[in-house]
Simulated assay, not measured.
Amino acid sequence: MLRVSDIMEKEIINIKNGKRMGFITDINLDINEGKIMSFTVSGDGGRSLFSRGDEGQVIFFNDILKIGCDTIIVNIGSELNIDDFNI
């Protein structure tokens, strides 16, 4: 069993492009079903559950591949594009 405080300390990494997305700033629950629906992630490093300002990026629970000791691995967006790099 994980506590909310444990989840919010884990960094979100997108497996599609290897980018660090930030930390969870909000958790969206379906109270009727008793399920987590999605997380809101802020890339500014803010870790407050009640933070205001930037809306952040929403990650649906189905996009989570693995919750590890230090990170949460997600599968979001398109594949890494080699044109994104200046080589």
Rank of each mutant, 00 (worst) to 15 (best):
residue 2 L to T: 06
residue 4 V to P: 00
residue 4 V to W: 03
residue 5 S to Q: 14
residue 6 D to Y: 11
residue 6 D to Q: 15
residue 7 I to N: 01
residue 7 I to F: 02
residue 8 M to C: 02
residue 8 M to N: 02
residue 8 M to D: 01
residue 9 E to L: 11
residue 9 E to F: 09
residue 9 E to S: 13
residue 9 E to H: 08
residue 11 E to V: 12
residue 13 I to M: 13
residue 13 I to W: 11
residue 13 I to Y: 13
residue 13 I to S: 10
residue 13 I to P: 13
residue 14 N to L: 10
residue 14 N to K: 05
residue 14 N to M: 08
residue 15 I to T: 12
residue 16 K to P: 15
residue 17 N to E: 14
residue 17 N to F: 10
residue 17 N to A: 13
residue 18 G to Y: 09
residue 20 R to F: 13
residue 20 R to V: 15
residue 21 M to L: 15
residue 23 F to Y: 15
residue 23 F to A: 05
residue 24 I to Y: 06
residue 25 T to Y: 04
residue 25 T to P: 01
residue 27 I to G: 00
residue 27 I to W: 02
residue 27 I to T: 08
residue 29 L to H: 04
residue 29 L to S: 05
residue 30 D to C: 08
residue 30 D to A: 04
residue 30 D to H: 05
residue 32 N to M: 04
residue 32 N to W: 04
residue 32 N to L: 01
residue 34 G to M: 03
residue 34 G to T: 09
residue 36 I to M: 04
residue 37 M to F: 07
residue 37 M to Q: 09
residue 39 F to V: 04
residue 39 F to E: 00
residue 39 F to L: 10
residue 39 F to P: 00
residue 40 T to M: 08
residue 41 V to I: 14
residue 41 V to G: 07
residue 42 S to M: 12
residue 43 G to C: 07
residue 43 G to H: 09
residue 44 D to Q: 06
residue 44 D to P: 12
residue 44 D to C: 10
residue 45 G to S: 05
residue 45 G to L: 07
residue 46 G to P: 00
residue 47 R to P: 01
residue 47 R to T: 03
residue 47 R to L: 02
residue 47 R to I: 00
residue 47 R to A: 01
residue 47 R to E: 00
residue 48 S to T: 02
residue 50 F to Y: 01
residue 50 F to E: 04
residue 50 F to I: 02
residue 50 F to C: 02
residue 51 S to M: 06
residue 51 S to F: 01
residue 51 S to K: 12
residue 52 R to Y: 09
residue 53 G to M: 06
residue 54 D to H: 11
residue 55 E to V: 07
residue 55 E to I: 04
residue 56 G to L: 03
residue 56 G to A: 04
residue 56 G to M: 03
residue 57 Q to D: 07
residue 57 Q to T: 08
residue 57 Q to L: 11
residue 58 V to A: 01
residue 59 I to R: 02
residue 59 I to D: 00
residue 60 F to M: 07
residue 61 F to W: 06
residue 62 N to L: 06
residue 63 D to C: 11
residue 64 I to V: 15
residue 64 I to M: 12
residue 64 I to C: 10
residue 65 L to Y: 10
residue 65 L to S: 11
residue 66 K to Q: 13
residue 68 G to C: 15
residue 68 G to T: 14
residue 69 C to N: 14
residue 70 D to H: 05
residue 70 D to W: 06
residue 70 D to Y: 08
residue 71 T to W: 02
residue 72 I to A: 00
residue 72 I to T: 07
residue 73 I to N: 11
residue 74 V to H: 10
residue 75 N to K: 04
residue 76 I to D: 00
residue 77 G to R: 06
residue 78 S to I: 07
residue 78 S to Q: 10
residue 79 E to Q: 06
residue 80 L to I: 09
residue 81 N to K: 07
residue 81 N to T: 00
residue 82 I to Q: 12
residue 82 I to Y: 11
residue 83 D to E: 15
residue 83 D to S: 14
residue 84 D to M: 11
residue 85 F to P: 03
residue 85 F to T: 01
residue 85 F to H: 12
residue 86 N to Y: 14
residue 86 N to G: 12
residue 86 N to D: 01
residue 86 N to I: 13
residue 87 I to Y: 10
residue 87 I to H: 09
residue 87 I to E: 00
